[in-house]
Design a protein around this nucleic acid. Structure first.
Length: 422
RNA sequence: GGAGGGGUGGGUGAGUGGCCGAAACCAACGGUUUGCUAAACCGUCGUAGGGGGUAAACCUCUACCGAGAGUUCGAAUCUCUCCCCCUCCGCCA
């Protein structure tokens, strides 16, 4: 959520940002109108309440002096109802304003390029080379089948399509990658959380899954919970409604969780193998930082995620997302994509975003300046480090041998306990 | 799931209809005192939203004592619903 004060003070700036995101700038005018209406109602109601308080104090004083207060009381009878009505109107206005504000996207950072879609994302860095393979490389869905690493069919039987079962060395490889990513994060100074896999509606609203993206989450109807679509949700909500001392910043948290996504509407393309599944594993980073530090934090998170790919020896590229391809809550975002030899295409394995104060305002996470003064919103960032399925896909394809085996990169040996599959 | 107890400011904790945004203590911050430290003493010490003020300072109003609704001229205090925590019982990994 944006700060309503920015709308009041610099509406043009906000409109321009919204336009860059290809969303509706007239939201600004709607919000300003509702804001004005809200303040008028507020003033009316408060004047009345002030009078009520004054008169009530008079009644108390009169009764203390054993005077007759019935006249005054009679005069005030009915004022309570009037106040109630005004409060009701005010509540309606506030809800309308909030609903408009919740529809208003975060503004893109000035360093984000213009664009109209994914084709305008800017590749800004490459690392490594596609592996030299002098035989027809297999896609990972063939490899996991022939090597018995993942059983998609039985997963479909047990739950449904998109719920793979990892088997034997496949399961072990998955676990090894999770441990590797978590250990690396710990060495980089992150505190590990193992959070709940279900969250309540407040948490889902705080990070922006609700109200818009409800259809993307699995819902536990009977208890009003949502299965986490990413660890971002429980982890960022960890400090919801809190005021942190400035000395505590930056807060750097990491967490492994399974991620549950309905992926409604994405049937058809790109769903083969591990490209898109309903449950997958991911290690996520969350940073809560001082407002002046978020730009730098974004870069350092990106550099950290890159370091993981380098240790795994995977060919990758970095994309700076254009304004149109930014998510609703994001001001700036990098995607990391690894090269899939078997599919001859790039696969997104990490997305690193700065939300500045947008999420913090929804979540009400503030810090108290060390110098004293009013609490201010922190800036939040998150990034995958990393999402497992496509890493596994790229890794199996990248390190496959002509005999159909797979060589495990040395960084993982300590975690897998084996160096080759097959 | 059943029975009982409870949710008050950063913490402990008082407050059963008005003078309560809320005692007291602790913590924190500023100061006085002090050779240094400690102690003592004085002061400050919640959040949010309006209005005023050129802005900061500051002034002023309103709301908030788990959440919501109700009773009343007036609610932290009484009533109802819900949420959460604790204790005991049951069930259970």
């Amino acid at each position: 959520m944006l700060d309503i004060k920015i709308l009041r003070e610099q509406p043009d700036l906000v409109r321009a940002g919204i336009r860059r995101k290809r969303e509706d700038p007239s939201l600004v005018d709607k919000a300003l109108e509702l804001d004005l209406q809200r303040r008028q109602l507020l003033q009316k109601g408060e004047t009345l309440k002030s009078r009520k308080n004054t008169v009530s104090a008079q009644v108390a004083a009169m009764k203390a002096k054993k005077e007759d207060a019935t006249a005054v009381i009679a005069e005030m009878r009915g004022v309570a109802d009037e106040i109630k009505m005004l409060d009701e109107e005010l509540r309606t206005a506030e809800e309308a304003l909030r609903s408009v504000m919740l529809q208003m996207p975060n503004l893109p950072d000035p360093s984000v390029p213009d664009g109209t879609g994914p084709e305008d994302n800017k590749p800004i860095a490459h690392w490594g080379e596609p592996p030299v393979i002098d035989f027809p490389p297999k896609p990972h869905w063939d490899l996991v089948k022939s090597l018995g690493l993942i059983d998609f069919d039985r997963g479909t039987k047990v739950t449904g399509a998109g719920f793979p079962v990892y088997v034997g060395k496949g399961a072990r490889l998955e676990r090894a990658l999770i441990s590797f990513f978590l250990d690396e994060a710990m060495h980089a100074g992150y505190t590990e959380l193992l959070p709940p896999l279900m969250v309540n509606a407040d948490s889902a609203t705080g990070t922006g899954q609700l109200p818009d993206k409800e259809g993307q989450m699995y819902v536990v109807q009977s208890d009003g919970f949502f299965l986490v679509p990413t660890a971002e949700v429980p982890v960022t909500n960890f400090y919801r409604d809190e005021i942190l001392p400035e000395e505590r910043l930056p807060v750097r948290l990491c967490a492994y969780t399974p991620c549950f996504r309905r992926e409604a509407g994405s049937y058809g393309k790109d769903v083969r193998g591990l490209n898109r599944v309903h449950q997958f594993n991911k290690v996520e980073l969350v940073n809560l930082v001082h407002p002046t530090a978020s730009a730098e934090a974004l870069e350092s998170m990106r550099a950290y995620a890159e370091s993981l790919l380098r240790k795994l020896g995977l060919h990758y590229r970095v994309l700076l997302m254009c304004a149109a391809d930014l998510g609703f809550t994001q001001t700036k975002k990098y995607d990391l994509e690894v090269w899939s030899v078997g599919q001859q295409r790039w696969l997104e394995v990490s997305s690193i975003s700065n939300f500045e104060s947008f999420q913090a305002r929804r979540l009400n996470i503030r810090y108290r300046p060390a110098a004293g003064g009013k609490p201010e919103m922190v800036h939040t960032l998150n990034g995958s480090a990393l999402a497992l399925p496509r890493i596994v896909a790229a890794l199996l394809e990248h390190y496959q041998t002509p005999e159909g085996k797979v060589v495990i990169p040395s960084a993982l040996h300590a975690f897998t306990g084996f160096e080759v599959i097959g």
